[in-house]
Protein backbone atom coordinates (compact mmCIF):
# COMPACT_ATOMS: atom_id res chain seq x y z
CA UNK A 1 0.00 0.00 0.00
CA UNK A 2 1.38 3.39 -1.00
CA UNK A 3 1.12 6.56 1.04
CA UNK A 4 -1.53 7.96 -1.31
CA UNK A 5 -3.59 4.76 -1.12
CA UNK A 6 -3.49 4.89 2.66
CA UNK A 7 -4.61 8.53 2.67
CA UNK A 8 -7.40 7.67 0.27
CA UNK A 9 -8.72 4.94 2.57
CA UNK A 10 -8.28 6.92 5.76
CA UNK A 11 -10.30 9.80 4.32
CA UNK A 12 -13.38 7.68 5.00
CA UNK A 13 -12.38 6.94 8.59
CA UNK A 14 -14.76 8.57 11.06
CA UNK A 15 -12.97 10.92 13.42
CA UNK A 16 -14.67 9.51 16.53
CA UNK A 17 -12.98 6.15 16.03
CA UNK A 18 -16.16 4.22 15.18
CA UNK A 19 -14.32 2.50 12.36
CA UNK A 20 -11.39 1.24 14.45
CA UNK A 21 -12.70 -2.32 14.29
CA UNK A 22 -13.37 -2.27 10.56
CA UNK A 23 -11.14 -4.57 8.54
CA UNK A 24 -11.28 -2.16 5.61
CA UNK A 25 -9.08 0.30 7.52
CA UNK A 26 -6.73 -2.25 9.15
CA UNK A 27 -3.74 -1.95 6.83
CA UNK A 28 -4.01 1.81 6.47
CA UNK A 29 -4.27 2.28 10.24
CA UNK A 30 -1.23 0.07 10.78
CA UNK A 31 0.70 2.08 8.25
CA UNK A 32 -0.32 5.34 9.92
CA UNK A 33 1.04 3.95 13.19
CA UNK A 34 4.39 3.12 11.63
CA UNK A 35 4.89 6.02 9.23
CA UNK A 36 5.29 9.35 11.09
CA UNK A 37 4.44 11.40 7.99
CA UNK A 38 1.22 9.52 7.41
CA UNK A 39 0.54 9.49 11.16
CA UNK A 40 0.81 13.28 11.36
CA UNK A 41 -1.38 13.68 8.31
CA UNK A 42 -3.99 11.35 9.80
CA UNK A 43 -4.02 13.18 13.14
CA UNK A 44 -4.53 16.57 11.45
CA UNK A 45 -7.16 15.11 9.18
CA UNK A 46 -9.17 13.68 12.09
CA UNK A 47 -8.86 16.90 14.03
CA UNK A 48 -10.13 18.92 11.10
CA UNK A 49 -13.01 16.48 10.54
CA UNK A 50 -13.99 16.78 14.19
CA UNK A 51 -13.93 20.57 14.02
CA UNK A 52 -16.03 20.68 10.83
CA UNK A 53 -18.58 18.20 12.21
CA UNK A 54 -18.90 20.19 15.44
CA UNK A 55 -19.53 23.43 13.55
CA UNK A 56 -22.11 21.89 11.24
CA UNK A 57 -23.95 20.35 14.18
CA UNK A 58 -24.60 23.88 15.43
CA UNK A 59 -26.88 24.63 12.46
CA UNK A 60 -30.44 24.62 13.78
CA UNK A 61 -33.60 23.99 11.74
CA UNK A 62 -35.90 27.00 11.32
CA UNK A 63 -38.61 27.53 13.95
CA UNK A 64 -41.88 25.87 13.05
CA UNK A 65 -40.42 23.20 10.80
CA UNK A 66 -41.20 20.40 13.24
CA UNK A 67 -44.83 21.51 13.63
CA UNK A 68 -45.24 21.81 9.86
CA UNK A 69 -43.91 18.28 9.39
CA UNK A 70 -46.29 16.82 11.97
CA UNK A 71 -49.27 18.67 10.54
CA UNK A 72 -48.29 17.69 7.03
CA UNK A 73 -48.23 14.03 7.94
CA UNK A 74 -51.70 14.29 9.41
CA UNK A 75 -52.92 15.94 6.23
CA UNK A 76 -51.45 13.10 4.20
CA UNK A 77 -53.17 10.61 6.44
CA UNK A 78 -56.49 12.44 6.22
CA UNK A 79 -56.21 12.79 2.46
CA UNK A 80 -55.85 9.03 2.11
CA UNK A 81 -58.84 8.43 4.32
CA UNK A 82 -60.70 11.49 3.13
CA UNK A 83 -64.21 11.35 4.56
CA UNK A 84 -66.15 11.45 7.78
CA UNK A 85 -63.67 9.43 9.82
CA UNK A 86 -61.42 12.42 10.26
CA UNK A 87 -63.93 15.23 10.00
CA UNK A 88 -63.69 18.62 8.49
CA UNK A 89 -62.57 20.75 11.37
CA UNK A 90 -59.67 18.62 12.50
CA UNK A 91 -58.54 18.10 8.96
CA UNK A 92 -58.66 21.77 8.23
CA UNK A 93 -56.65 22.71 11.25
CA UNK A 94 -53.87 20.26 10.51
CA UNK A 95 -53.95 20.89 6.80
CA UNK A 96 -53.89 24.62 7.24
CA UNK A 97 -50.99 24.32 9.64
CA UNK A 98 -49.10 22.35 7.03
CA UNK A 99 -49.83 24.57 4.08
CA UNK A 100 -49.21 27.69 6.08
CA UNK A 101 -45.96 26.12 7.17
CA UNK A 102 -45.05 25.49 3.56
CA UNK A 103 -45.83 29.01 2.54
CA UNK A 104 -44.74 30.81 5.68
CA UNK A 105 -41.26 31.44 4.45
CA UNK A 106 -42.59 33.29 1.44
CA UNK A 107 -45.97 34.75 2.35
CA UNK A 108 -46.31 36.21 5.83
CA UNK A 109 -49.72 35.58 7.38
CA UNK A 110 -51.07 38.57 9.21
CA UNK A 111 -53.68 38.31 11.94
CA UNK A 112 -57.29 38.96 11.03
CA UNK A 113 -60.06 40.50 13.08
CA UNK A 114 -60.66 38.81 16.43
CA UNK A 115 -64.14 37.68 15.41
CA UNK A 116 -62.70 35.73 12.51
CA UNK A 117 -61.32 32.24 13.18
CA UNK A 118 -57.53 32.07 13.35
CA UNK A 119 -55.54 30.94 10.36
CA UNK A 120 -55.12 27.50 11.95
CA UNK A 121 -58.81 26.89 11.30
CA UNK A 122 -58.68 27.82 7.66
CA UNK A 123 -58.80 25.15 5.01
CA UNK A 124 -55.70 24.57 2.89
CA UNK A 125 -57.88 25.24 -0.11
CA UNK A 126 -58.06 28.88 1.03
CA UNK A 127 -54.29 29.11 1.18
CA UNK A 128 -54.10 27.52 -2.24
CA UNK A 129 -56.74 29.91 -3.57
CA UNK A 130 -54.76 32.97 -2.53
CA UNK A 131 -51.57 31.58 -3.98
CA UNK A 132 -53.26 30.60 -7.23
CA UNK A 133 -55.06 33.92 -7.45
CA UNK A 134 -51.73 35.71 -7.30
CA UNK A 135 -49.63 33.35 -9.41
CA UNK A 136 -52.08 31.38 -11.59
CA UNK A 137 -53.05 32.03 -15.18
CA UNK A 138 -56.73 32.79 -15.06
CA UNK A 139 -59.37 32.60 -17.71
CA UNK A 140 -62.04 30.25 -18.95
CA UNK A 141 -65.04 30.42 -21.17
CA UNK A 142 -67.92 28.31 -22.37
CA UNK A 143 -71.63 28.53 -21.85
CA UNK A 144 -71.85 26.91 -18.41
CA UNK A 145 -68.96 29.02 -17.21
CA UNK A 146 -70.55 32.15 -18.64
CA UNK A 147 -73.84 31.31 -17.00
CA UNK A 148 -72.18 30.76 -13.69
CA UNK A 149 -70.19 33.98 -14.03
CA UNK A 150 -73.37 35.88 -14.89
CA UNK A 151 -75.05 34.55 -11.80
CA UNK A 152 -72.07 35.26 -9.62
CA UNK A 153 -71.89 38.79 -10.92
CA UNK A 154 -75.52 39.52 -10.24
CA UNK A 155 -75.72 41.84 -7.31
CA UNK A 156 -77.37 40.26 -4.31
CA UNK A 157 -77.39 36.74 -5.68
CA UNK A 158 -76.11 33.91 -3.49
CA UNK A 159 -73.14 31.76 -4.43
CA UNK A 160 -74.47 28.59 -6.12
CA UNK A 161 -73.93 25.45 -4.11
CA UNK A 162 -74.22 21.67 -4.34
CA UNK A 163 -76.33 20.40 -7.21
CA UNK A 164 -76.46 23.90 -8.75
CA UNK A 165 -72.82 23.51 -9.69
CA UNK A 166 -72.62 21.67 -13.01
CA UNK A 167 -69.13 20.46 -12.27
CA UNK A 168 -68.68 18.13 -15.23
CA UNK A 169 -70.10 20.62 -17.70
CA UNK A 170 -67.92 23.36 -16.36
CA UNK A 171 -64.91 21.12 -16.56
CA UNK A 172 -65.69 20.00 -20.12
CA UNK A 173 -66.52 23.36 -21.62
CA UNK A 174 -63.51 25.43 -20.91
CA UNK A 175 -63.81 26.69 -17.39
CA UNK A 176 -60.34 26.60 -15.88
CA UNK A 177 -59.49 23.26 -14.29
CA UNK A 178 -56.60 22.95 -11.84
CA UNK A 179 -55.13 19.80 -10.41
CA UNK A 180 -54.93 20.13 -6.65
CA UNK A 181 -53.70 17.30 -4.48
CA UNK A 182 -54.31 15.01 -7.44
CA UNK A 183 -57.94 16.02 -7.91
CA UNK A 184 -59.61 18.33 -10.39
CA UNK A 185 -60.71 21.69 -9.12
CA UNK A 186 -62.45 24.35 -11.20
CA UNK A 187 -61.91 28.07 -10.93
CA UNK A 188 -64.34 30.76 -12.01
CA UNK A 189 -63.38 34.42 -12.01
CA UNK A 190 -66.06 37.04 -11.71
CA UNK A 191 -66.53 40.70 -10.83
CA UNK A 192 -69.05 41.79 -8.22
CA UNK A 193 -69.45 45.46 -7.36
CA UNK A 194 -66.24 46.24 -9.18
CA UNK A 195 -64.21 43.69 -7.25
CA UNK A 196 -62.60 40.67 -8.91
CA UNK A 197 -63.21 37.39 -7.11
CA UNK A 198 -61.95 33.88 -7.79
CA UNK A 199 -64.20 30.97 -6.85
CA UNK A 200 -62.58 27.55 -6.54
CA UNK A 201 -64.70 24.41 -6.39
CA UNK A 202 -63.39 20.97 -5.48
CA UNK A 203 -65.68 17.94 -5.66
CA UNK A 204 -65.96 15.92 -2.47
CA UNK A 205 -65.57 12.12 -2.67
CA UNK A 206 -69.27 11.45 -2.29
CA UNK A 207 -72.57 13.00 -1.18
CA UNK A 208 -73.89 12.70 2.32
CA UNK A 209 -70.63 13.50 4.02
CA UNK A 210 -72.26 15.79 6.52
CA UNK A 211 -69.38 15.67 8.94
CA UNK A 212 -67.35 17.51 6.39
CA UNK A 213 -69.78 20.42 6.06
CA UNK A 214 -68.46 23.58 7.66
CA UNK A 215 -67.30 27.13 7.34
CA UNK A 216 -66.87 29.67 6.10
CA UNK A 217 -63.37 30.13 7.49
CA UNK A 218 -61.46 33.25 6.62
CA UNK A 219 -57.79 33.76 5.90
CA UNK A 220 -55.96 36.99 5.28
CA UNK A 221 -52.42 37.02 3.94
CA UNK A 222 -50.21 39.74 2.59
CA UNK A 223 -50.97 38.58 -0.96
CA UNK A 224 -54.75 38.39 -0.58
CA UNK A 225 -57.70 37.04 1.35
CA UNK A 226 -59.86 33.97 1.07
CA UNK A 227 -62.75 32.13 2.63
CA UNK A 228 -63.32 28.42 2.48
CA UNK A 229 -66.35 26.33 3.24
CA UNK A 230 -67.88 23.02 2.36
CA UNK A 231 -71.23 21.41 1.67
CA UNK A 232 -71.88 17.73 1.16
CA UNK A 233 -70.95 17.98 -2.54
CA UNK A 234 -68.03 20.36 -2.76
CA UNK A 235 -65.25 22.22 -0.99
CA UNK A 236 -65.15 25.91 -1.92
CA UNK A 237 -62.68 28.74 -1.67
CA UNK A 238 -63.35 32.34 -2.58
CA UNK A 239 -60.30 34.54 -2.99
CA UNK A 240 -59.80 38.21 -3.62
CA UNK A 241 -57.27 40.95 -3.15
CA UNK A 242 -60.02 43.20 -1.78
CA UNK A 243 -59.74 41.91 1.78
CA UNK A 244 -61.73 39.70 4.11
CA UNK A 245 -64.49 42.28 4.52
CA UNK A 246 -65.33 42.17 0.81
CA UNK A 247 -65.47 38.38 0.89
CA UNK A 248 -67.63 38.32 4.01
CA UNK A 249 -69.99 40.81 2.43
CA UNK A 250 -70.43 38.61 -0.61
CA UNK A 251 -71.05 35.49 1.43
CA UNK A 252 -73.55 37.02 3.83
Amino acid sequence: MTLQEAKFILSSYRPNGSDSGSAAFGDALRMAGEDPVLGAWFARSRELDTAVAAKLAQIAPPPGLREAILAGARVGESHRKRGPAWGWMGGLAAAAALVIGLFSLRVPVRPVQPSIPSSAQVAPIAVFAIDDMVHGKHGGSGEPASALVARLETKGSAIPTGAEIGFDKLKATGCRTISWQGEDMIEVCFVRDGTLFHLYVLRRPGPGDDDAVGGPFYLEQAAGSAASWSDSHFDYALASTAGVAAIRKLLL
Binding site: P62, L65, A68, G72, A73, V75, G76, E77, L102, L105
Partner: peptide
Amino acid sequence: NGSDAGDLVQQTFFIWAT
Protein backbone atom coordinates in the same frame (compact mmCIF):
# COMPACT_ATOMS: atom_id res chain seq x y z
CA ASN B 1 -31.10 27.68 0.92
CA GLY B 2 -33.25 27.30 4.00
CA SER B 3 -36.59 27.55 2.26
CA ASP B 4 -35.94 24.71 -0.17
CA ALA B 5 -34.29 22.68 2.59
CA GLY B 6 -37.41 22.99 4.76
CA ASP B 7 -39.57 21.93 1.83
CA LEU B 8 -37.37 18.89 1.20
CA VAL B 9 -37.59 17.77 4.83
CA GLN B 10 -41.36 18.23 4.90
CA GLN B 11 -41.73 16.37 1.64
CA THR B 12 -39.63 13.50 2.97
CA PHE B 13 -41.77 13.03 6.07
CA PHE B 14 -44.92 13.56 4.01
CA ILE B 15 -43.89 10.64 1.79
CA TRP B 16 -43.24 8.55 4.87
CA ALA B 17 -46.69 9.36 6.19
CA THR B 18 -48.65 9.04 2.96
